[in-house]
Amino acid sequence: MWKREKKPVVGVFGFSGCAGDQLAILHMEDELVDFFTSADIKFFHMAQSHQEVEHVDIALVEGSINTDKQLAELKEIRKKADIVVALGTCATHGGIQYLGDNEKEFEERMLLVYGKDGKIPEFSELVGNPIPAKPIHKFIEVDFSIPGCPIAKENFIPIYTKLISGLKPSKYPYPVCIECKFQGNDCFLLHGEYCLGPVTAGGCDACCPTFGVPCVGCFGAYEGANFESMIEKLIEIGLTEEDAKRKLMMFGGEATELALKGEK
């Protein structure tokens, strides 16, 4: 950890994704001025220009790594940063574009989207060569992870505030299902409707079930998730095993992939 003797230098960096985690910071209108004044924001290219950094105390990194060029930049960020925080489900889990180690499917997708005369075209060095999408911890050491598609301020602010104060944040302890109970919501599953709240990492205050729509799992898997029981329940309410697994994998990334293969 760095020590708070001055305002920490913070950089916000983005790789492949929808830029929703950077935007979620800009959408915290009530805390926006505090965000930009409580630390020395040296790099945040969605919000400001004229930036070059030699060193940052804290790097917030959004997006999955989808090209070799991004991979090289990510390694540069790790060298320059004392603390690296993975921000959002693309950075923490790989996001909706995560494919695991399935290289064959990656080729097929490239061919389908960019293919010309049955071949994947060459891309210039300006944009880098494509690689299957991976979360950032596959390539560098990550100090903290804040999942979410996008991140929620209920989760982001407590962790970030501790970090810029030179304190060690604690992991968010609950799945969405517990937060949903705190909110006093009725349960979808008990009514025979699909919901991924029991196996999904919390931090969103169960925003979707509170709104009357089921959790789609956008924070990725909760560490103590019982997938076996979740799948059983989903089959009981009428989904096939294949449907259940596909839904779990939408935002699940590697952790869910391994769990579903029985390797974790």
Binding site: F15, C18, S64, I96, R109, V127
Partner: peptide, 27 residues
């Protein structure tokens, strides 16, 4: 030049349900 990496959403929604699709493409 656009070096936002390829996410290939059109390919990954294949085989997904129409309801899963609207959650994915919004992203």
């Amino acid at each position: 030049d656009i070096f936002e990496g390829p996410r290939m959403i059109e390919a990954l929604v294949r085989g997904k349900t129409i309801h899963e699709n609207i959650s994915l493409v919004a992203r």
